[in-house]
Nucleic acid binder design. Structure first.
Length: 279
DNA sequence: CTGCAGGCCGGCG
DNA sequence: CGCCGGCCTGCA
């Protein structure tokens, strides 16, 4: 068990706001999360302390600080966004302590392909199924968990397993994306060195990856905050909050970029969170 | 029974 | 080009 003191994070919102598909809320209010190479249990108290246990406590503090993006100064970012307009100010107030997780790029790639036109509970079920079939088993507190498979572990993925995972019509997208990785047409490490626009185009060459999915992969897998993952929620929110800009994806996207600048990815995440929680 | 869920593809005008 | 119907599947 490790303890991190005085951490400014809204743990529950950060974990459950839809960016992470592999968590379990425990009866005591703590969360068990399968992340990277381990399983952790994390809880907080009233004094902003975090308590973390894991099956693998090597380097645990560093892993946690990295995953929850605890070294970044979100106050500075919020200050910049606060001044954009009154609407964003309210969204930020509804999203205090929300962090953008730093998750594994490959996991984000597959998970967000599955996410399209889908429900969060079904996405989790499908992802967990693939993990059980291809990922490494981990025992934590006498329970079994499965890590998200590495590229090598899943490179020979079977179409039948995909069908069993209930990803539906997205099976062919996953299959062809993995084939492209196998053939060297898609290298997720290369994306790190690309600028955001090039990275978006690079990802959107894949069947089943459009602007929204590519943006989510970059936002949650590569900490690129200058993307605009416009989904049905954000679209609804924008229609209400900025009724004059229209409903076209491209118009909304340009508006968001213009309005929120280099942190528009975080701005939209605040908006998404605010929209879903406050209604 | 329909509609719909963190979109995207493909075909048409 | 932009628009729009259809799509796996399961739950409200």
């Amino acid at each position: 068990m490790i303890k991190l003191q005085n951490v400014d994070i809204n743990l529950k919102d950060t974990i459950t706001c839809g960016q992470c598909f592999r968590f379990y809320e425990e009866n005591d209010g703590s969360f068990t999360i399968v992340l990277k190479d381990r399983v952790i249990n994390i809880k907080n108290d009233e004094q902003n302390n975090l308590y973390i246990e894991s099956n693998n406590e090597d380097n645990l503090e560093k892993v946690i600080i990295d995953y929850f993006d605890l070294e970044r100064n979100y106050d500075d970012i919020n200050k910049i966004l606060l001044n954009k307009d009154k609407t964003m100010k309210e969204c930020i107030e509804n999203s205090k302590g929300l962090k953008i997780l730093k998750q594994e790029p490959f996991e984000m790639l597959i998970s967000y392909i599955i996410s399209q036109n889908n429900k969060v509970s079904r996405i989790s079920n499908s992802v967990n199924y693939l993990c059980e079939k291809y990922g490494k088993k981990v025992i934590f507190k006498n329970k079994e968990y499965y890590l998200f498979p590495t590229i090598d572990e899943i490179k020979n993925i079977d179409l039948n397993v995909l069908k069993e995972s209930k990803v539906g019509f997205r099976d062919k997208y996953i299959l062809s994306t993995i084939e492209n990785i196998n053939k060297g047409n898609l290298n997720i490490k290369d994306i790190t060195n690309m600028n955001t626009n090039d990275a978006l185009k690079y990802l959107e060459r894949m069947k089943g990856i459009g602007p929204k999915v590519a943006s989510c992969i970059l936002l949650f897998g590569y900490s690129r905050f200058d993307v605009f993952p416009i989904d049905t929620w954000v679209k609804k929110a924008m229609a209400v909050l900025y009724s004059d800009i229209g409903k076209k994806q491209k118009d909304i996207s340009e508006f968001a970029k213009e309005k929120y600048g280099e942190y528009c990815g975080i701005a939209l995440q605040y908006m998404y969170h605010s929209m879903r929680n406050v209604k």
